[in-house]
Design a protein around this nucleic acid. Structure first.
Lengths: 231, 231
DNA sequence: CGCCGTATTGAGCGCTCTCAAGCTAGGTGG
DNA sequence: CCACCTAGCTTGAGAGCGCTCAATACGGCG
């Protein structure tokens, strides 16, 4: 089950710091009704955060862990729409339809912060800087996963790995893949076998080291060249 | 060359009506410096609206016509990122990087309205409703072209045609394709030949009528079923 | 009418998928 | 401690979808 609580959370780098009651001074807090603006949810691996058709009311900021969003196609296939990691926000895509049209599921033990949209809107109206920030985040989201348009499996996989290594803010490009080969393939429109084959080829070419979910990118420039279709 | 002017433009359905000087009353106008908030640009077919690396300062609302955005990949291939039609806005994706990372080119004779971003931000701060609208539009943009993730050529093409027929607000699903087969393919990650082949197959199956760029969708449900991977 | 760019259609190839058989690592129970 | 089990990963062989290359048809325009 989802565990609510606020202990041991580091809010220092949160996008929503200016929305957040913990960041506001006493005067501001007195002007507002006595509710908690944010709420933490602790999810175990594989736990579901939201389901399709659920009304959109909240953003979810990932504090720790990883989330995947997915749709079930009419033909029954699972289609992964995105991965979300620490300091990223889930929910912008649900504003327009007014409901989530995807499921969101934790890939590993994860802590998210639930931010009421209405509260966010009110906060935005009082804070021009937050307004500007919100447009920036959403603009960033529009550009997310643009490498999915690349034509070959090799290109998309190389671009995906480079993207991960950036977003996970790794040291030495060393990180754990929180998702399975099947999930990577599903996201990149490839089969798990094809993902596995190209990971092996990259390993053989000494562009990376990999052992199950432990991976380290070694030759960033070459991987980038592959993503760019130059190799 | 780009022709500036404001004659014969219908602003009734514009997203930005509340930003627009022509919509504001005299009192509001007196409070502001004497500049034109919006400016119309008339583009001939194939004319370029913006180029990569140009600093982002403006949204472009398409009043009439059609625009494509494209990038040149490192390997020299043209990659079409999106099509924009009447009443759609180009530019949200450039907020975050701070510059356009694509070219935008008119597919046919086109009229766009240039809206300064800074002006837009100021307007947003005074108008909570516009604020809410802006988030809606950007959210919509995040979801745009989601059918590009579909796995087969047939699915993507069917979804594309259905998308066009909606966005062009056609009568009887009858419309003109403003882009070439090559451009469709380029957007859908297919070759022009593959596009042509499947258009022919759809025609043969009497799902649509087509003659060069004139097209009429006949069997929407069947096309949708194809897009859904059910056929 | 002839020219040229675009669209169509065909034949063969190659990349990615499908299906299937090992392999590995982690967990369980004797 | 090890045999066993299971889920996910790897690797191989063959098939099929979409690409490449090429020939032909169409249509707009000078």
């Amino acid at each position: 089950m989802i565990n609510h609580g606020q202990n041991h959370i580091n809010c220092q780098r949160c996008h929503f710091d200016t929305v957040c009651s913990t960041q506001e001074n006493a005067t501001e807090r007195l002007l507002k009704p006595p509710f908690t603006i944010k709420r933490f949810l602790k999810l175990k691996a594989k736990e579901v955060l939201c389901v399709p058709e659920r009304k959109f009311n909240h953003f979810y900021l990932i504090h720790q862990g990883a989330i995947k969003t997915l749709q079930i196609e009419a033909n029954g296939k699972e289609l992964i729409r995105g991965f979300y990691f620490a300091n990223e926000v889930l929910g912008y895509e649900a504003i327009y339809p007014g409901h989530y049209h995807f499921s969101a599921q934790a890939l590993e033990d994860t802590v998210v912060c639930e931010i009421p949209y209405e509260q966010f809107l009110k906060s935005v109206n009082r804070k021009p800087l937050l307004q500007k920030q919100a447009l920036l985040w959403m603009s960033k989201q529009i550009n997310a996963g643009s490498y999915l348009a690349l034509s070959s499996a090799k290109q998309r996989l190389a671009a995906f790995l480079l993207d991960l290594s950036q977003r996970l803010e790794t040291v030495d490009q060393r990180f754990s893949l929180p998702m399975s080969r099947q999930e990577i393939g599903n996201y990149l429109r490839l089969t798990a076998e094809t993902v596995s084959r190209f990971v092996s080829k990259f390993k053989q070419a000494q562009l990376l080291q990999v052992q199950k979910d432990k991976i380290q990118l070694l030759e960033l420039e070459q991987l980038q060249a592959i993503a760019d279709g130059l190799i």
